[in-house]
Structures are given as C-alpha cells and as structure tokens.
Design a protein around this nucleic acid. Sequence first.
DNA 1: TTTAGCACTTGCATATTGACATTGCTAAAA
DNA 2: TTTTAGCAATGTCAATATGCAAGTGCTAAA
Lengths: 335, 335
Amino acid sequence: MLGVIKLLSERSSNVLKMIVEEYIKSAKPISSSSISDTLKCSSATVRNIMADLESKGYIEKTHISSGRVPSEAGYRYYVDNLMKPKEMTGEDMLNLQTIFSNNNLQLSDAISKSLEIISEMTNYTSVILGSSANENLLKKVEIMPLSDNNIIALIITDRGHVEHKNLTIPDTISVEEMKRVTEIINKLLVNTPIDKVSEKLEFKIKPIIGNYVKQHEVIYETFLNVFNDVANRSSMHFVGKNNLLNQPEFNSLEKVKDIIEKFDDKSLVDHIKANEDGINVYIGSENEFDEDVTIIKTKYNINGEVGTIAIVGPKRMEYDRIIGLLEYLNSNINR
Amino acid sequence: MLGVIKLLSERSSNVLKMIVEEYIKSAKPISSSSISDTLKCSSATVRNIMADLESKGYIEKTHISSGRVPSEAGYRYYVDNLMKPKEMTGEDMLNLQTIFSNNNLQLSDAISKSLEIISEMTNYTSVILGSSANENLLKKVEIMPLSDNNIIALIITDRGHVEHKNLTIPDTISVEEMKRVTEIINKLLVNTPIDKVSEKLEFKIKPIIGNYVKQHEVIYETFLNVFNDVANRSSMHFVGKNNLLNQPEFNSLEKVKDIIEKFDDKSLVDHIKANEDGINVYIGSENEFDEDVTIIKTKYNINGEVGTIAIVGPKRMEYDRIIGLLEYLNSNINR
DNA sequence: TTTAGCACTTGCATATTGACATTGCTAAAA
DNA sequence: TTTTAGCAATGTCAATATGCAAGTGCTAAA
C-alpha cells in the first residue's frame, strides 16, 4: 500500500464504483451502455472513461469486445476509497439479533450460529479458527481407568481446550503408577505452553520419575506421545463449505476440486488465520490461500480465548455487506 | 435376494465376468470384438451372448450402438457368483503390514492409517464411523473451574469417549453448587446410556437437587443442555474424501457437488453405518447414500468399542481387491 | 469535450460434416 | 442347431461452419 496513490476524478470514481457494484450483483461483464443512463452521458463517453480506468489497471476485459470486469487493483481501490460498510438491512439484523439476545447460548455457540446464518444469507463460506495449541497453557492432566488395560488421558488447558487420548497400557504398568506421574506433571508443568510441554517433560520429568515408578521409560514415552499428539491438533470449523461452490466463478470441475482440496488441507489453514487487528480484506492474490477468492477476516477474543473468524467468498464479494456484518458481530462479541 | 436365481451357463458367466472386470479397469463400454479373442469365438457369437445377458438384465448399453456396461444386477451377480476375494499383492501387503507390526500404534490409529493407505492405493474414499453415543454408557461427569465465571464440563463414557463443553455460569451459581450436582449425577446416573441421560435427569435428578442447591432450575437447565448437546454428537472420519472425485464417473459438476454435499450431511451418515455382520456390499441403489456409488462396509470391534469401516467407490469398484483388503484388516484387528 | 455512427472482434448456440465404433440382422457355413 | 461373415443402421465424437447478439475502438461531426 505504499507508493503514490493517484486519486481518481469524481466521475471516474463513480464509473469504477458502478462497475464493481454491478459486477458484484450480476457476475457478468459490465457494458458501457448499461451505465450510461445513470451517469447521464452517452455510452461513448463512458467508453472513454473505461479506457482510462483500464489503462490505470482498475478494470479489465475478458476478451476484446467484452464489457469490463474489476481487476484486483479495482476491488482494492473500491474497498479502500469508494465503499463504506453497509448498515445491516432489517432482515439481516433480525436474524442475528435473535441469536445474541438468547442468553442461554454460550458465546462460542453464538458465533457458530451467526456464521451459519451469514453463510446462508450470503452464499459464502465461513471459517472459525480456534486458538492454536501453542497459545494455550497446560492446566491439568488427568487419567481415568476404563478397564484393566485401557485408560483415558485428558489434557485441559487454561483456555478451556480439552483433548483426550485413549491408551492401552501394558500389564507391566499399573494405573497407580500412571496416576503418580500425572500428579508430578501437574505439580511441575502447570502453566507451561502446550507446545513446550514435550521439552519440559524430557528435562524436568524424565530425570526424576525413576524415583517414583518402575518402567519409567515406557511411562515417559507414553506421556510424550500424548503431548506430542495434542500439541499438533488445532480446531477449525467450516460453515457452509459448499456455498462457495454455488458461486458462478466455481463453475468448472477443476476449480471446484481445487478449492475442496484446499479446504481439506490443514497446512493451508495458517493462511486463513488473522494476524492483524481489525477487519481485514485480502483480495485474490493478496491472500495465500487461493487467488480466486477474497478472505475477510477478524480476530475474536472471548474471555482471553482468541481465534479468527473468516469469510471466504469470490473476489466479487459483497464487501460492504460482509464488513458491516463483521463489525456488528465484533461489537456483540465484546458486549 | 429371494426369488428364483437363474444360474448362467458357464460361457455366459465368463462373458459377464469379463465385461465386469474389463469395465472395472477401463471405465469404457466393452465391445463384443474386444473379448471374442479370449473367448475363442467370433464377435458375432459374443454379441448373441451379450444380447441374452442384456435381456436378463445383467448388462446395458449406453446408446444403441455402444458396447456393454454392467448393470447393478450384473455387478450383484458378479459379486455373489463370479468373484472371489483377491489375495493381496505383495505391495499392498507390505504397506499394510508395516502398520500392524508397529506396536507403538494405538489400534484405532492403525485403522486410520490403514485406511489412508487403502484410499491412496485405490482412489476410493474411506469412512470410519465411531460408535454413536447411544451405545455408550455414562461413566463420569466432571466439572473444572477455569476462571470465576467459566467452567468446563467433561463427560466421559465407558467406551472412552470424552466430550466437553465450556460454560459461562451466572454469578448467582457457585462452582461448589455445580460440583455438588455433579456428585449426585455421578452417584445416580452412572451406566445410563448417554441418550437416556436427559430423561433421567428430569425424573431422578431434577426433583431432588432443590434440597442441595439454590437456583436448582438454572443448574438443571445447564446440565440438560450439556447432555443434549453431547448425545447428538457422533464421530466420523473421512479419509481421502477427494479421491472419489477423481474417478471418471464424477466428471460433471453436478455429481461432484452432489456427493460433496452428501459427505457433509450428517443425516446421511446413518446410511453408511454397518448393521450386518461380515463384509457387506451395497451396490448403487442398494445403499441409501448415493445411487452412483458402491459402499463396502464391515463392523469393527476394539475392546468393546464398536464402529464401522466403509469404503465408498464408484459402482465400478474393484470388489475383489477391496473385499480382500477388508478381510485382512478384520483379521488383524481381531489379532 | 461529448456524441453518433460504423466497422470489427468475440462469444455462444446451433447445425453440418466425416471418421469411427459397434450393434442387430440375415443368410450362409459348419 | 450353432456359429460365423457381411453389411446396413445408428450412435458418438471432434472439427468446422454459420448466424446472431453484444460490446468495443475509432473517426468525424456536433
């Protein structure tokens, strides 16, 4: 966003704005004649302005004799200079308010529900990303016998994450011994960041448990496995994954498969996580997830539990509406 | 499967078998000439046999002058009478054996890993369905304070399921009171099937907690919500969801979207669950999930925890190979 | 600076064509 | 009675043509 920003003349701005907004509605290239009426001039004049906008890089043609389509730079200019967040319509408002006025709902459930509604209203896909494990501190480890050789290990973090793993333990180890080690871990490692636990397990726990239990190596390995496992889990929740596929830009088999695979690929989720404050818009190649989509995201913070809310849609997204909705959501989350 | 089963002559059987197996390999209609060599007769003779098989409903034409394609009845006859489970090839064997010989792996993890490999080898989609909640008995409820107004409720079942829910409790309720109710539930409702807990909560717990805690209505409602929530969760795990989409039968946008939506639709999962013992094959409209796929499924049982393993592929599935693989898997799960 | 007019380009939907694959049928051969 | 050769009929598929509609760029006049 550095560099000289050339502001467009008022009339050029109007044309760009109309092209963007019309295209968002119709998904079809916009012709000069279709906006000449509203602009109170002839289509030829509009064509002149369009030629100018095209030379500046804000709009494009799909082929030599087609109407114009906004470019990424065009959307960016629109978002930065021409658009303002849309006040919610009565209907949108009504749908969301009933959720937040329902005090029985957990706040995190309210967010899920809101996003379900937003996804349905807009035909975009929403993603909720839970705070990744390394931001959580260990609060408690607990084990619970199920049968002779089976126990559950529970790991609970300060932010309310719970992970569990079923274990089959060999006959040589008793539940009592496992419990003893659990107590030691609880005494020494509480408030350690989850992703640091494995390390501390090696240096603080491993050297001493030999004094308390037999078979300390096996037990150490068991706990190490459990923690390694847990540290690598992260929560993400898609709402309306298929909505996106109904957008006209996803009308080819290739693109559909491509986006589906990306939604499934855990390694790409990092690219959805919100790193900046406020509501941010990443248009096309501005995001690392997929160059054909726009992602609008914002952080949320519920009692210290932080995460990301993201709306994924085509570049031809209703920017003003979504930003308005997210602003409303944010203000409600922070009461 | 009732009714008269007309067994085909040996030569007809051979032709049907060749058509099915060739079509499974190539996904292209099979012509009379392409199998006349192997059958040691002219294509005209094969055509006569084919006409007969078609009149019996075992094969079909895609258009008047096309080769033949197996019908559902044809696949069914093939599976019931012509096919035998395929011994695994050295390669398949090798891949799977390394998993089961690794004793460090939890059995459930070994199943996941095996299915990953199977999905990759075959380009089908695998599904693992955990036992649904109503087969689990309540083992313990536990609550844990996080901060003043936030607690976690944990629900653990006899089969090692753990569910949790974060709760915000009003100031009027103390953690102590919540704990007291938890103790009562643990005393009275342990070993109740999860889906019956809500009911028992109403008749056995609600009437008496007034004696132990103030605000018993709010507390009752809170626990009721938690259990209702938990009873409706069920675990399912897809492996290689996108593999199926690469099969040539899913070459249209419509079908891809359709199957993706079905995979997402929780209500359809019931149709994947295995109800019968052994390895069962549901071809096309024989399953209620999707008429364009075949589902081969089997129950598994690990230390009393039961569930379903299912392979979802096109009707043109390598029946013999998959059944062979599942037999191997089953025998390994039961040691 | 704006506009009217027109030639030009492209997309799209719909035939047209020819090459090819495969069948069913008929009549001859085994 | 069963098998086969031969051939017309019917379909797919890919490439090509055709006409129409939409929309632009350019030129010259207003």
